[in-house]
C-alpha cells in the first residue's frame, strides 16, 4: 500500500483523476469559481517557471512577478493593437526569454543573497517603468478590455470556454517544463545547483546553463502573463509589484522547490485556499504567514517534502512491523522444523 503511494502508477492515476476533475469542473462551478481555478493555473505556470530557475538550477530570483507583468503587458498591448493572440503569446515568451537571459548575467558574477537583491531591484525597476511610462503602459490606469482570443473559429470569450483554453495552455506548458526537467538540460541544471564548480570540471558549460536557467524560467513567466492578460481582461501595474514576485517565491518553496508538482500545490495555497477559508476573512494572510514559518521550521522542503516524509515514515513502520512479523513467523518455522526434526529423528 505504501509502495503504491509513491509508485509511478499511483502518480499517474492521481494525475489522470486531477485532469478529469479539471475537465468536468466547469459544469459544476459558477463563473467566479472558474475564474479562480483558471487563476490558480496561471499562477502555477508562473511558479513552474520560477521552479526551473530556483528549484532545479538553484539560482534565486525575486523577479518572476516582473516577468509575468512583462508578458501580460506585451500580450495586452499587442492584442489591443489587433495582433492575433498566438503571435502575441509567442512574443511575450520570446521577450521574457531575452530579458531573462540578460538578467542572468549578474548571476554569473554574484550568488545567493546578492543575486536575490539584484533580481529584487530589477523587479522594482520594471514596476516603476510600468507605472511611469504612460505613453506605453497607460500608467496607473492600466490596460482595459483586453480581448479574449478566437482560435480556429473557437471563440473563448465566455468564462467556460476561456477556462478550457487556460487548461489546454497550462497542460501544454506544464508538459514542456516536464520535458525540460527530464532532458539533459534538466540534469545539467541540477548539476549546477548541487555543485557548480564540480559541474564545470565535469564539462558542463555552467555559464550557458546559468543564463539558460534564467531565460527559460522567465519565458515561462512571460507565458503565464500572456494567459493572465485575457483571463482578467483588466490589470494595472500594482498587480505585478514586488509582492507578486515574493508570493511566487513563497509558492515554489511552500509547495516544494525542485519537485514537479510543488508549484501546483504552492499556487493552490495562495490562490484557492483563501477562498475556501472565507471564515478566516482578513486574518487569512496572518494565518498563512504563521503556517509558512512553522512549515519552514519543521520541513524546509515544503508540502511535497512533508508528504514524502510522512509516507516514508509510514513505510518504515510497515517494514519494521513486517519484519517483526517475519521474525515471529521464522521463529515459529524454526520451532516447527526442530519439532519435525526430532520427530523425524524419533521415526528413524
Amino acid at each position: 500500500m505504501m509502495d503504491f503511494l509513491t509508485s509511478r502508477a499511483f502518480k499517474g492515476r492521481v494525475f489522470v483523476l486531477l485532469m478529469v476533475g479539471l475537465i468536468v469542473l466547469p459544469f459544476f462551478l459558477r463563473p467566479f469559481g472558474l475564474l479562480l481555478v483558471a487563476m490558480w493555473m496561471v499562477h502555477a505556470v508562473a511558479a513552474l517557471g520560477l521552479n526551473l530557475t530556483l528549484g532545479y538550477a538553484g539560482q534565486i530570483s525575486m523577479a518572476q512577478g516582473a516577468f509575468v507583468g512583462i508578458g501580460a503587458y506585451c500580450t495586452g498591448l499587442m492584442t489591443l493593437a489587433g495582433v492575433p493572440y498566438p503571435i502575441a503569446f509567442l512574443c511575450s515568451g520570446a521577450l521574457c526569454f531575452a530579458i531573462g537571459w540578460i538578467l542572468g548575467y549578474p548571476a554569473l558574477r554574484v550568488q545567493h543573497h546578492y543575486l536575490a537583491f539584484v533580481t529584487l531591484a530589477f523587479s522594482t525597476l520594471v514596476f516603476l517603468v510600468m507605472r511611469n511610462e504612460e505613453w506605453l503602459t497607460n500608467g496607473i490606469y492600466g490596460l482595459t478590455d483586453i480581448p479574449r482570443p478566437i482560435l480556429f473559429g473557437w471563440n473563448t470569450g465566455k468564462a467556460q470556454d476561456f477556462y478550457f483554453f487556460t487548461l489546454l495552455m497550462t497542460s501544454m506548458l506544464a508538459f514542456c517544463v516536464w520535458w525540460i526537467i527530464r532532458s539533459p538540460w534538466g540534469r545539467a541544471f541540477i548539476a549546477l545547483r548541487e555543485n557548480p564548480v564540480r559541474a564545470l570540471s565535469l564539462g558542463v558549460d555552467t555559464r550557458r546553463y546559468t543564463l539558460m536557467a534564467f531565460a527559460m524560467g522567465s519565458s515561462i513567466g512571460g507565458f503565464a502573463g500572456a494567459l493572465y492578460a485575457p483571463l482578467v481582461q483588466f490589470f494595472e501595474p500594482n498587480s505585478f509589484s514586488l509582492t507578486l514576485s515574493l508570493k511566487l517565491l513563497l509558492m515554489v518553496i511552500v509547495g516544494g522547490s525542485g519537485t514537479f508538482f510543488g508549484p501546483f500545490i504552492g499556487a493552490a495555497t495562495e490562490v484557492l485556499l483563501p477562498e475556501w477559508l472565507r471564515i478566516a476573512q482578513g486574518y487569512y494572510l496572518i494565518i498563512y504567514a504563521m503556517l509558512v514559518m512553522v512549515l519552514m521550521m519543521f520541513c524546509p522542503t515544503g508540502i511535497i517534502g512533508l508528504g514524502e516524509r510522512i509516507i516514508s515514515h509510514l513505510r518504515q513502520k510497515k517494514i519494521s512491523s513486517e519484519r517483526s512479523a517475519q521474525a515471529q513467523a521464522m521463529g515459529q518455522d524454526k520451532v516447527a522444523q526442530t519439532k519435525s526434526d526430532t520427530q523425524g529423528g524419533a521415526g528413524q
Binding site: H113, L246, L250, I253, G282, V292, M293
Partner: peptide, 19 residues
C-alpha cells in the same frame, strides 16, 4: 536548514507583522 528557508521565513514574518 541554511539561508533560503530562513529568507522565506522572514518574508512570511514581514507579511505577518504588516497584516
Amino acid at each position: 536548514h541554511g539561508v533560503l528557508p530562513l529568507v522565506i521565513s522572514t518574508i512570511a514574518l514581514s507579511i505577518f507583522l504588516k497584516e
